[in-house]
Simulated assay, not measured.
Amino acid sequence: MHDEAYGGYDLPPRTIRVWFADLRALGGRLPSLRALLSDDEIERAQRFTMERLTNRFILRRGLLRVLLGRCAGRAPESLRFDYGSHGKPSLPGGPSFNLADSEDSVAIAVAAEGRIGVDIERLREVESADGIADRFFHVSENAALRALPPERRDEGFLLAWTRKEAFIKAAGIGLSMPLDQFAVSVTPGAPAAVLAVDKALRGDAGRPEDWSLFDRRVLPDTVAAVAAHGTGWTVETRLVGEALFTGAAAPQVSAPS
């Protein structure tokens, strides 16, 4: 099946497209999205003890299948995922992708190829942010956070968290990667960047200059980060809407970085 059948969901080189969705707007599609899932995905969904969490999993996974199907020119229900040693899913033959969620807010990053990662968090007050940073963050990140005015520290912490999670997911080393062995920028308003990678990680993750890091704020009261190995990347954002399900081209969203 060709790209034009799905409304031009082709993926230009060195371009990451990130689709954002509020799952509450997709509740009416729960039965149709559930029908796209594989048996093992249904089994995973049923492990949740709360119906709300089961439904979120179904909506996230079904949405991922529809989007990847559009980008790959394949039927969503036909997709079969591989899982690496750290459990990160991939699609044989591409495209590259990564999914993140924070309650009902979802971000799905897709690129023709490459190592990419995405994370999203709700902007909120974070209990014990200072303690978490003291215990887990790189010493330079902790110092930068403590230098912020108190009213900006929660935002700075969440910027750090999303950037670090996106980097970890793109690196593909696994979520057990030590958070204190690499550093990202944390100051609100400053460019997103990987600032340091300790020598212990360089064999797997490379050097800071090997990475690109971006912030995007698309859904209300959220911040998202996108990481990609290499330079020269462009990030485009989309909002999930009827276009995705009807096959029409999705309009690009203008969002501050």
Rank of each mutant, 00 (worst) to 15 (best):
I16Q: 15
V18L: 06
W19K: 10
W19M: 07
F20C: 11
A21N: 02
A21D: 05
D22Q: 12
L23M: 08
L23S: 05
L23W: 05
R24A: 11
R24T: 07
L26H: 12
G28S: 01
L30P: 04
P31H: 12
P31N: 11
P31A: 11
P31C: 09
P31R: 13
S32M: 13
R34I: 02
A35D: 15
A35V: 08
L36S: 15
L36T: 15
L36E: 06
L37G: 15
L37M: 15
S38T: 12
S38W: 08
D39K: 04
D39G: 15
D40S: 11
E41I: 14
R44C: 04
R44M: 04
Q46A: 09
R47D: 02
R47G: 13
F48I: 00
F48T: 01
T49N: 08
T49F: 07
M50E: 04
E51V: 08
R52Y: 00
L53R: 02
L53G: 00
N55Q: 13
N55G: 13
F57E: 08
I58G: 09
I58N: 08
L59N: 01
L59F: 12
R61L: 03
G62E: 04
L64Q: 15
R65V: 04
L68E: 15
G69P: 09
G69S: 12
R70A: 14
R70I: 01
C71A: 13
A72L: 05
A72M: 09
A75T: 07
P76G: 06
P76S: 12
E77I: 10
E77D: 11
S78I: 08
F81M: 10
D82W: 11
D82N: 12
Y83N: 07
G84H: 09
S85A: 14
H86F: 03
H86N: 11
K88P: 12
P89T: 09
P89I: 05
S90Y: 06
S90T: 11
P92V: 03
G94W: 00
S96T: 05
F97V: 01
N98D: 08
N98M: 03
L99C: 12
L99G: 09
L99Y: 05
L99P: 04
A100R: 05
A100T: 01
A100H: 00
E103C: 10
E103K: 06
V106G: 12
A109E: 02
V110N: 03
A112F: 00
E113D: 13
G114D: 00
G114I: 10
G114S: 01
I116C: 03
I116L: 13
G117Y: 10
V118L: 06
R122C: 04
L123Q: 08
R124C: 06
E125N: 14
E127Q: 14
S128V: 03
A129E: 02
G131C: 00
D134N: 11
D134W: 07
F137K: 14
F137Y: 15
S140G: 05
E141H: 09
A143D: 14
A143F: 02
A144E: 12
A144S: 14
L145T: 08
R146I: 02
A147Y: 01
A147L: 08
A147P: 05
L148R: 05
E151A: 15
R152C: 07
R152W: 12
R153E: 07
